[in-house]
Every structure is written in C-alpha cells, then in structure tokens.
Nucleic acid binder design. Structure first.
Lengths: 229, 229, 229, 229
DNA sequence: AATGAATGAGTCTTCATTCAT
DNA sequence: AATGAATGAAGACTCATTCAT
C-alpha cells in the first residue's frame, strides 16, 4: 500500500533516519509529516463518522483520538464538511485502487467479471466503514445530487460495456442491451452491499460471490422455460 | 369521590344505563380529529426529514408547514426521535399495504413475482421520500441494529420460499437454494432502489421491471454457455 | 378536624343525604362541592410541591392525582403562583389552629410554654411538607420580603411577651429582656425544625422537647459558674 | 509518533533535559487564568442564584455579568446544576476557612465557644448569599438527602464534644449529654440564621451573639427556680 | 504549525396559561 | 364548571469555527 501513498517518513531504505538535523534543506520532512498527519486525521474521522454518524461526531473526538488539538484539524481541512467529503473520496479511491490492483492482470472476460465482483465484496468486508460513509453522505449532504460513489462511474462503465459487447459478439452473452446488463450487475452488487449492511447481518459478502454469479449468469428458470417466458 | 364529579354516565330514570361510553363533562376528545392531526404531522415531517435530513429539520418547520405551534407536535409525539421513528414505520406500513393490495388476487406464480417487483418499484417511484427516511434512519440512529425496512422481513420471506419450492417441484425453477434465490431477488430490488436513488437518476424504477425480470429469469449467458460455466 | 373546615358533603348529622334532588333551592351543594374540590387541590398541590419542588411540579401532575383536567385548577386558583401561596397559607393556618387548640386550656405559664413548644414540634412531625413549602417559598418567591411563616408573627408575639413579663415579676424568670427571650426561643424552635429537616434526620422533633426545654430553662453552665461568666 | 510532533522537551545539546515540565507547542494553558475565570464565574453565579433563585437565573445572565459568552461557562462547569453545587461547596468552604482562622489561636474554652458563634454570625452577615444558596439547594435538589451545610458536619462535631466533656469534668458545664448540648447550640445558631433571614430582618446577626450566649449559658429561669423545674 | 479558550447561533424540550366546546 | 388541545415564550446545552499566543 505504501507505494500508492507518499512516504510518511523520510527514512532511507537502509534503515537509517536521514533527518537528524532539523534544518536540512528542501524541507522534505515537513511535507511528509503534513501528509502523514492528514491521513491520520482522515482515518480517525472515517472511523468516527462511520461509528457515530456525521452529526454525532464532535471534531473534538477526532482530535482526542489523535492526541491533537481541535484547531489543528483546521490546518488540514477547511471545515468539518470538507473533512467528511475528503473521507468519502479517500474511501472510494481506496476501493478503486483495490479493485484495479486485483483485476489488472486478468484477460479472460468471465474471470474478470467474477474477480471484479469478488473484489468489491472483499473490499467492503474489510472496510465496512466506507458503506457507512456513503449513507452518511446521502443523509447529510442533501445538496449533492449524486453520491460520491457514483461520481466517475461513467468512465468506469465504458470498458465494461465494451467487454460486454465483445462477449455478445462471441456468442457468450445473450443478445441484450449491454447497458441493461451493466445496470443489473451494478444494482445486484450495490443491493447486496446495502442489504447486508442495513439488515445488520455480519455474513461476509465475499462468500456470496459464487451464488450471485451463478444466478446472474444462468438465471433462475429451468432451461426449457427460458424461451417461453 | 364521585359526588365531587358530575355523573359519568347518562343514566335514564328507569335505572337502565343508556350508554356504555363514558362521557366526561367538558369538551370531548375528538378522536378522529386527533388522528387526522397526527397523520398531518407525520406527512409533513416525512417530507421535511426526507428533503432536508433529520438533523437539518427543525420541528419548527414542521409546525409552520401545518400552521400550528411547535408545542402541538409534542402533544402527538414524545420527541423528535419518536416522530422520526413513527414516520419510518408509517412509510413501511404503507409500502406493505400497497404491495399486498396489488398482489392479493394473483395466483399464477411468475405473474405474482413480476407484480410484486413492479409494485415495489411503483411504490418508491411515488414515495421516494421513504427511501430517504431509510437512509436517514441508518445514518442517525446508530443504536438500531436492524433497519426498520428489514424488521418483519422474515415473516414475509416464508411464503416466498414456499412458492419457490413449488416452482422447483414443478420444474419451472432450476434446482437451487430457494434461500439464495430469495436473497438474490431481494438484493436486486433493493440495489435498484438505492442505486437509482443515490445516483440522482430520475428514471422511473417501474420502467426497469421488464428488463430486470428478464435477466433474473434467464441470466445473461447464451443458452449453450449456461451449462459450461 | 371537620369542625374547623366547611363540611365537605351536605350530609346532615343524622346520616341521611339531604341533597338527592339536584335542583334543590339555594345551591348549597355547589358551594360545598366547590370548597371540597378546592381543598383537594390544595392537598395534592402541597404534597407535590413538597416532594418535587415548586418548579419541578407540573400542574398536570396535580390534575392527574385528582383525576381532573388541568384547566379545572384554574377555576379555583388564578395561577400556579397563587395556588402555591394558598398552600403555604393553608399550611400555616393549620399550624396555628393546631397549636391554639392544644394550648387553649392551659393556664400554668411554664406548662404553657412547654406545651407550645411540643405542639410546634408535633405539628411538623406530622406535616413535614409544610417545612418544605416554607423553603420553597423562600427559594422561588424572591419578591416576598417576609416568609409567610413570619407574617402575623408579631400579633402572636404580644401575648408571649406579656406572659414573660409576668414571669419576671413573679421571680420565675431572670430579669432580662422579654424580647430577647422570645427571640431566643423562636430561634431555637425554628432552628431545631430546619436543622432536622435539612440534615435529613428522621428523628421525631417532639422527642427533643424535654432536653430543649431543660437547656432553655437552666442553661448549660454549672450553678456556681452562672454569675461568674 | 513523536516524530510527527515537535519535541515536547527543551533538551539542551549536552543531553541533559533542562526542564521536567512538558511544554506542548502552541498557546499554553494558562492555569492561573483558568482558575481566576472559574472563580469569577462562581462569584457571579452565587450572587445571581442568591438574588433571583436557581431556576430564575439564566446562565446567560451570569455570562453577561462577566462579559463572556454563555458557552464559556460550559468550559468550566459541566452543567448549570454542577455550577450550582460548586457555588454551595465554595460558599461552605469559605465559611469553614473563616471560622477556623478566627478560632485557631483560642485556647480558653468558653472564649472559643463565644468566638465560634460570633464568627458564624459574622460570616453570614457578610455573606448572606450563602444562606440563600442553602435554601435554594434544599428547594431544587430534592435528590440530595443531606444539605451540603451538614456534610462533613460530624467531623466538626467531634472536637466540640471533647471540649464539652472536659468542661463537664472541670465542673464548668452541668452534667448533661454533650450531644444534647451540641445539638442545642447548633440549632440555636442555625435557627437565628434562618429566622433572621426568612423574616426579612436586616439586623446584624453578630449583634445578637451576647444575648444568645447569655441565655445559652445561664438559661431563662431565676436561680432559685432552676432545680425545681 | 499547534493550541485550546472563547464564541454564539442553533434547537430541542417544557409547561403555565388560554379558550373553544 | 369541566375539559384538554393549542400555544409560544423561555432556557439549557452543543459544537463548528475563530484567533491570540
């Protein structure tokens, strides 16, 4: 993970701290320090917003968790709202990085689909607080027409549509609107996510990947019934 | 003590009580009026909670909408929290009444499924504020383990499972766990609901019933591919 | 007790109810009924004011205790303040009636003093709520310069001063200001009352009469020391 | 983690820590200023609670008197209740300090008694608001079984009992229960305090010390009558 | 950059009082 | 006279944000 984030300490690879002198030129330490602090705040805030809700979270709590003064937070984020939005954005960024990393090297189409679905489930099993943030966002930020979750969704959509078209051309998929397929799949993943979350179940999402894909691929009807319906 | 109070029963001179209902002196409680007022409050509150969010809604606003004083609301609901919970419960009750009324007279199984799905979508198209309340509930009432939406879900589940078993026995459904089918369907409906809602789309849910059921029934794979996967 | 209060029911002494007909001339029933209701309210209010404090007592509670509507209270008392003042006044009236009744027939001076002190203690043992009302009054009604307890105190004072003068003339009391003696005694009784009350002790006041009088009469010094001090 | 924070100790280059006190960066907490502010609030609140009553005092008034915002008060006291309790406790502490300071160096027993009584009276002459607080406390805080005034009373009692025993042994006091003497004296002082206060008299308590002690010591009966009673 | 005391707008809730019936 | 729904002023408490140090 560290490779995706700026280094949090100017430690050289040989294990020796290189910044013994405070006045080293170029101030690389300050920057790294600032980023580290920023992320610490994001992490604490994410956890608290998720556990207690946006409105029930006092910035004092975030500060206390970090052993820092409340005012310090305002050196890194404009406002509480700002901090929250940053938390959501950060969470979604992590989701995308996670899924991308896992699916990057897969070329076989159906395997790619399976892996993407499984990755989504996997991520939210490990980061349930991100779901919470999405709910919080919708609940408190009524001015945001579109959930951060869906921002940039359309760019992600395109490659999938292309894949589906190819699968159709290859006779793997039935002849149906790729848009429709994409939405159906999205809704299924999204619904599984929220349903599990809202219903208070603790069953891992990832364990449902298999059966979800099975129905998605083959439907629920018996073979002979498919055409008749 | 009764001597200090007017008689509470209109007893006719012949000694027979002519009415069972106790009629206190003074202005009588108008039960019907009370219920009407109660529902008016629920309606206003639902709308405002949905549009502005629970925490951003001052009960003063609800009162103003109804042209009553803030205190009046407290004659009908213990607290703001109470009012909110009543709104959610009321909304869910309406949902169930709506679906039940539409599906009551349908005996053909697949038609029943279609109608149920369409009814759900239809209801939320007409009452988008109910989705909002569910989100609000999850966001603000962290103590509630299970969303009101899922309370009583299990009772609703049973008839569906029985239906699915029958469809399997009749060779309509493939041989697969009815539980799994039920969850898949639930998640699909739920996901469609929330995805549309969160993404800010205004496209009617009901219009997606057909394609949703098509994929649900037949899956996305070409016939020949189904067994191979 | 009933002799000191208006009859609460128009029942003649022979045990027959005389007001079977509602429309009897002169409306005696209404008046009696009104007085009874008034006293019921005073009693309930006194108890609640004493137990919960003036500000913590909702008139709704008083009404509920009596099985009556809140508005009814306003037919008997102008306001909550009014009701409270009536409670205090009523309590003090009962105190004076009680003490007067017990001391009326006593002619022997020292016995009279003893009996008066004992009567005070006795009354407050039986009606601790009256002490509470006095405290409440002082706490909440800052505009009243003088506690109701001390209103009319000066009239009561005079006979005592005359008695003390006589006791001095008879060589029973030392030669000292009767005013001073009166105040000392008052303070002692008052102090005993409040100290017991404030300290949370439940020991009956009346049981302290003996020792109180002993010290009051004879002081704490050994005989030989008295003149020397 | 310390690397993310500036060093918390000013360490001189020779390696010796020159100060034990941890000095956080940023504006230091000014402890003395905090205590000053705290006492200012206590003083204003005491005055207002005493003059207007606890329930009739808006913390806004206290804030206005001090020229600060209402929220500031909540930085020093948890709640209005808390503030009030602190006022009472503070007042009683001052009483005890005052009496202790005045009686410390007195060894002659009777003089000690006189001085203690006079000190009590003196204190309340100068701080009549403390009496008011005791009344307020009793009126509003029904959950407190025992008035703050009497808390810790028993410890204060012991030395007095010992003193009285010695006086008895020396033939100064009559042979009577020291407990009883203690209570009589307490009640007298307490009664004088409250009676003067409740009756609205403005006569200084301290001026009554002499006559009070005279009667306390010698009683009201003529010498010859003492044994006969 | 960090600190944390100060700020004060914002809201829920209570309850004495009124008044139409 | 009794009723109790409606009123709305009052007040405790919270917490995001500022800013002097």
């Amino acid at each position: 993970m560290t490779s995706t984030l700026p280094p949090s300490q100017s430690q050289s690879d040989d294990g020796f701290a290189v910044t013994v002198k405070t006045r080293s030129p170029g101030r690389p330490k300050d920057f790294a320090l600032g980023m580290k602090r920023r992320e610490d705040i994001l992490e604490s805030a994410t956890r608290l917003f998720a556990h207690r809700g946006f409105r029930n979270t006092d910035l004092k709590m975030v500060a206390d968790e970090l052993g820092v003064a409340k005012g310090t937070i305002y050196n890194y984020f404009e406002s509480k709202n700002d901090l929250f939005v940053a938390c959501v954005t950060f969470g979604m960024a992590r989701l995308r990085l996670f899924v991308r990393a896992r699916t990057r090297d897969i070329s076989e189409p159906l395997e790619l689909i399976s892996c993407a679905v499984e990755s989504y489930f996997h991520f939210f099993d490990e980061h349930p607080e991100v779901v919470e943030l999405l709910v919080q966002e919708r609940a408190e930020f009524k001015d945001r027409e579109t959930s951060t979750y869906f921002l940039g969704w359309d760019e992600h959509k395109l490659p999938w549509l292309e894949l589906f078209e190819k699968l159709k051309a290859d006779g793997i998929f039935r002849d149906m609107s790729s848009e429709a397929v994409y939405e159906f799949m999205s809704n299924q993943v999204y619904g599984t996510l929220f349903a599990n979350y809202f219903s208070g179940k603790k069953k891992p999402l990832a364990s449902q990947t298999g059966v979800t894909l099975d129905i998605l691929y083959r439907g629920i009807l018996q073979g002979g019934q498919r055409s008749e319906f």
